[in-house]
């Protein structure tokens, strides 16, 4: 992680000097994770892709404001968070129920994956985001609090509540021994 941060810092510095190829390396490093974060928040691949592009464009245009290049990833996810919630506020509520399911069935072990996706989908978006940032992206509580501009206690509360819900939702699978 330290090595990665050092590399990100170097790429940020080179991008600030106007070297676009350095920024493209940063994009290729983070695009998949940002896209997955967004797709799980907004529940739509096409919109998540549009938002991902917007996130990286805004990050590029505002890179000069990033004071600590070692914190590029949490700064990037903060932009992604703002874009996602701005999108969710704009989105008409009636479209939410009419849309296709957030995730398409994939080729992984079906029962568990579908149950997990359904469980995540059932969570409030704030809890889903907290789980995504903490468990999937591996950020620390204090980093998430900074990203979301809220107290650490709020982040913890969201993650804990989400875990309780997920635990209950997945209990039947647990009893049958499917994991």
């Amino acid at each position: 992680m330290i090595f990665r941060e050092a590399e990100d810092s170097d790429l940020v510095a080179r991008t600030k000097q106007g070297r676009i190829e350095a920024y493209n390396v940063l994009v290729s490093r983070w695009e998949r994770r940002v896209f997955n974060y967004l797709v799980r928040l907004v529940g739509n691949r096409e919109d998540a892709m549009d938002l991902s592009q917007e996130v990286f464009l805004k990050a590029y245009q505002n890179l000069a404001r990033l004071e600590d290049p070692a914190r590029f990833s949490s700064w990037l996810f903060r932009i992604a968070h703002n874009e996602a919630f701005s999108y969710l506020r704009r989105k008409p509520p009636e479209l939410e129920s009419a849309e296709a399911p957030a995730w398409r069935p994939a080729l992984e072990p079906v029962e568990t994956a579908l149950a997990v996706r359904a469980a995540l989908e059932a969570l409030p978006v704030e809890q889903r985001e907290a789980v995504e940032l903490k468990i999937c992206q591996g950020f620390k509580f204090d980093e998430i609090a900074e990203m979301l501009d809220c107290p650490i206690s709020t982040v913890k509360s969201r993650v804990y509540s989400a875990l309780d819900s997920l635990k209950e939702f997945l209990a039947p699978i647990d009893r049958r021994g499917v994991g």
């Binding site: 695009e31 998949r32 896209f35 997955n36 797709v39 691949r45 096409e46 892709m49 991902s52 995730w103 994939a106 992984e108 568990t112 994956a113 149950a115 997990v116 996706r117 995540l120 789980v131 468990i135 999937c136 997920l166 997945l170 994991g179």
Partner: peptide, 11 residues
């Protein structure tokens, strides 16, 4: 279960 959820491929 959440951690091992397969990632979506970027289009």
């Amino acid at each position: 279960a959440v951690k091992n959820l397969p990632e979506e491929e970027i289009p």
